[in-house]
Write a protein that binds this DNA or RNA. Structure first.
Length: 686
RNA sequence: GCGAAAGUGGCGGAAUUGGUAGACGCGCCAGAUUUAGGUUCUGGUAUCUUUGAUGUGAGAGUUCGAGUCUCUCCUUUCGCACCA
């Protein structure tokens, strides 16, 4: 049922033109005859058979996430997410304002190129195109050297990291493109770092002002021509490294000379647009989402390919397209790709013989909308119903930081697709986000695929689930990565035992009725209540705002240490102790629920702890008559003083200057300045 | 290579808004209890040449004052579009 609606949604997206098919590069192992994930390519070779992997262009389905790029960028303002995650998404989307420029190629189709730096057009000295570019393929037909070089270019993993790290290789095509600004002929090179699938498959190269172009030009002896100079007119050394900046002024650029970036951009853009040689264009680094997988395990893509009618969505009445389970695995490729009972169908339009799409969906499709569907899993008539709108958006989404870009961006995109289909009203799926750090084992990510996971069951068997929960929550704040170690679990166990026996000791002594308000309390009693209510305030903030459970636990440990030292047998003392234990058990219950459930009953409550409200801060307990202030001399801690909580700046300053410790360090030196930070410190500058 | 983070005692970590560095816990040391070990309890525990000085990956800078802000660099982790 889940993937039935996913398939249904895809057919809707096909009809809207958001789902479309085009070719894209994949890693191909020629021996296993299978597509490999980037992860499965180890140093350019297949992980299973060690064969050198090739790049192949195959037809695949895409979702036009680029149509939503601007909205995905803008709506980051609406969500309460960590700034680092928003930044990563912004950079990933990578909005840039530039130009599409047309370079004529005599006797051929012209080359289309996107550039963010049209102001450097006079410095362009060559063009670089992908190995799969039509110009390259045409040239290869009667030039075996070029054909051989194209083969070399195909020996590259499709991952961006691999493309950036590999040795940059190129070969001149032997034909030129014409620079539209000055009519100069520039050589066209095939380069292994340009991919056909991304952008137009061709770039213009300005080696004086781009690091990668510079390295390529140096390697192949191509001219490096400076067209931007530093604003202060300083000389730059083109032999030592490129000068990459927008903070300069154009030079050697005809009409642009002396202009700053923004002005030069507009000047050249107006001129190219007027000449019909280019147009301003906003581009995104973001590429459309490839959702096809040539694998068996997945939801079948609901498409029928008919030689007469083309690509047709499977009609809603025929959904779901069920993944066959009576398959035979032969170790090579997906079994449904050679399964006629699955593949052979009749065309829903013309009735003639047709074939099913045998690719399945990327599993990111499933993880993109479960948070809505799980509110209405029994709904058989629609993808979502009103319950989804009741619950969505998710108040607090918790997931690993490794999902900061892909999963979270796809889920945001899919939510907007469902919104535009009228299935949900909200704009964003996740209002607040907590990204957990990685749990590492011996320095690298603990994961199922790496097989280095630790099962907590042994610890649970030995210490109980409460101890293990407490220990894990205490180990580090959730956003931080943590190298797993179980040293220290004893400390959590000891804390539970201390908490248990402290409360048993308390309930065994006779409790008399007494009120624990701050009126007529002794100093020790006031201090105990101050500590309690400070702790409630801090722990509430840790849970709700900071999400730092380790410090919430530490504060409760401090509170237990304080109440253990609180040696007061009076009825009032006993009442205060009851107040402390009640609050402590409530505050710890989310972390150690089992023991707290029991301790709550032991503390004499008839109701269940889960029905009891969170403890509240008694503001009157927080009022202090005198506070401690730090005294610094020249920024160094030299003493401390007790002073009235409402003392003004002048009296703080006077008290600090009169302080014995401070005077020792001041000596005869003249006091130049005194800085008073109310409630905190006094700094005497000498 | 690019993007995002992190780096603090022997260890995990705390310091929330530029204001007492090392909370809390582990480990370790000493003592009490115990026939002994374990448990439990108490005290101590950054370093040093200790009237004090130094100290938050390295180096510079801003400031009365920097773990916190700025710049350069180093190391580690996550992500880089087919692991999910």
């Amino acid at each position: 049922e889940y993937y039935r609606w996913e398939q249904w949604m895809f057919t809707r997206l096909m009809e809207k033109g958001i789902a479309y098919r085009k070719t894209a590069p994949v890693n191909w192992c020629p021996v296993d005859a299978t597509v490999l994930a980037n992860e499965q390519v180890i140093e350019g070779r297949c992980w299973r058979c060690d064969t050198e992997v090739e790049r192949r262009e195959i037809a695949q389905w895409f979702l036009k996430i680029t149509d939503y790029a601007d909205e995905l960028l803008a709506d980051l303002e609406q969500v309460d997410w960590p700034e680092q995650v928003k930044t990563m998404q912004r950079n990933w989307i990578g909005r840039s304002e530039g130009m599409e420029v047309e370079f004529e190629v005599p006797g051929q189709d012209s080359l289309q190129v996107y550039t963010t730096r049209p102001d450097t057009l006079y410095g362009a000295t060559f063009m670089a195109i992908a190995a799969e570019h039509p110009l390259a393929l045409a040239a290869a037909q009667d030039n075996p050297d070029i054909a051989a070089f194209i083969e070399i270019c195909r020996k590259t993993n499709t991952s961006e990291a691999a493309l950036e790290k590999m040795e940059k290789l190129g070969m001149a095509l032997g034909i030129d493109a014409i620079n539209p600004v000055n009519g100069e002929a520039m050589p066209i090179w095939i380069a292994n770092f340009v991919l056909m699938g991304y952008g137009t498959g061709a770039i213009m190269s300005v080696p004086a002002h781009d690091q990668r172009d510079w390295e390529f030009a140096r390697k192949y002896g191509i001219e490096i021509r400076q067209v931007v100079e530093p604003a202060d007119g300083a000389a730059i050394d083109l032999e030592a490294g490129s000068f990459v900046t927008k903070d300069g002024r154009c030079c050697n650029s005809d009409i642009l000379d002396g202009l700053e970036f923004n002005v030069a951009f507009d000047a050249i853009a107006d001129r190219l647009e007027a000449a019909g040689k280019g147009r301003r264009q906003v581009n995104y680094r973001l590429r459309d989402w490839g959702v096809s997988r040539q694998r068996y395990w997945g939801a079948p893509i609901p498409v029928i390919i008919c030689s007469n009618c083309g690509m047709l969505p499977v009609p809603a009445a025929d959904l779901p397209v069920v993944l066959p389970e009576d398959v035979e695995f032969e170790g090579i490729g997906s079994p449904i790709k050679r399964m006629d009972s699955f593949k052979q169908v009749s065309c829903p339009q013309c009735g003639g013989a047709a074939e099913r799409e045998t690719d399945t969906f990327d599993t990111f499709m499933e993880s993109s909308w479960y948070q809505e569907r799980f509110t209405c899993v029994d709904q058989g008539e629609a993808m979502l119903d009103a319950r989804a709108d009741y619950w969505a958006p998710v108040d607090l989404y918790i997931g690993g930081i490794e999902h900061a870009i892909l999963h979270l961006l796809y889920a945001r995109f899919y939510h907007k697709l469902m919104r535009d289909e009228g299935l949900i009203k909200s704009n964003e799926p996740f209002q607040r986000l907590l990204t957990q750090g990685m749990v590492l084992k011996d320095g690298s990510k603990m994961s199922k695929s790496k097989g280095n996971t630790i099962d907590p069951q042994d610890l649970i068997d030995r210490y109980g689930a409460d101890t293990v929960r407490l220990f894990i929550m205490f180990a580090a704040p959730p956003e931080q990565s943590l190298d797993w170690s179980d040293s220290g679990v004893e400390g959590a166990y000891r804390f539970l035992k201390r908490l248990w026996s402290a409360i048993q000791l308390h309930v065994e002594s006779p409790a008399e009725q007494a009120s624990a308000t701050n009126k007529s309390l002794g100093d020790e009693q006031k201090a105990m209540r101050l500590k309690l209510h400070e702790t409630i305030r801090k722990v509430s903030d840790d849970y709700e705002r900071r999400l730092t459970f380790n410090t919430a636990i530490a504060a409760n440990m401090e509170l237990l240490n304080s109440v253990a030292r609180f040696d007061d047998d009076s009825a009032t003392g006993q009442a205060i102790r009851q107040e402390v234990f009640d609050a402590m058990v409530l505050m710890l219950a989310p972390i150690i629920p089992h023991i707290c459930h029991r301790l709550w009953a032991d503390l004499g409550h008839d109701s269940l702890i889960i029905d009891h409200p969170w403890p509240t801060v008694d503001e009157s307990a927080l009022v202090q008559q005198s506070i401690e202030m730090v005294i610094q001399v020249n920024g160094k801690l030299r003493g401390k003083m007790q002073i009235d909580a409402d003392a003004d700046r002048a009296s703080c300053e006077a008290a600090a200057l009169a302080n014995e410790q401070a005077m020792r360090f001041i000596g005869d030196s003249p006091v130049r300045k005194v800085i008073v930070v109310p409630g905190k410190l006094v700094n005497i500058v000498i």
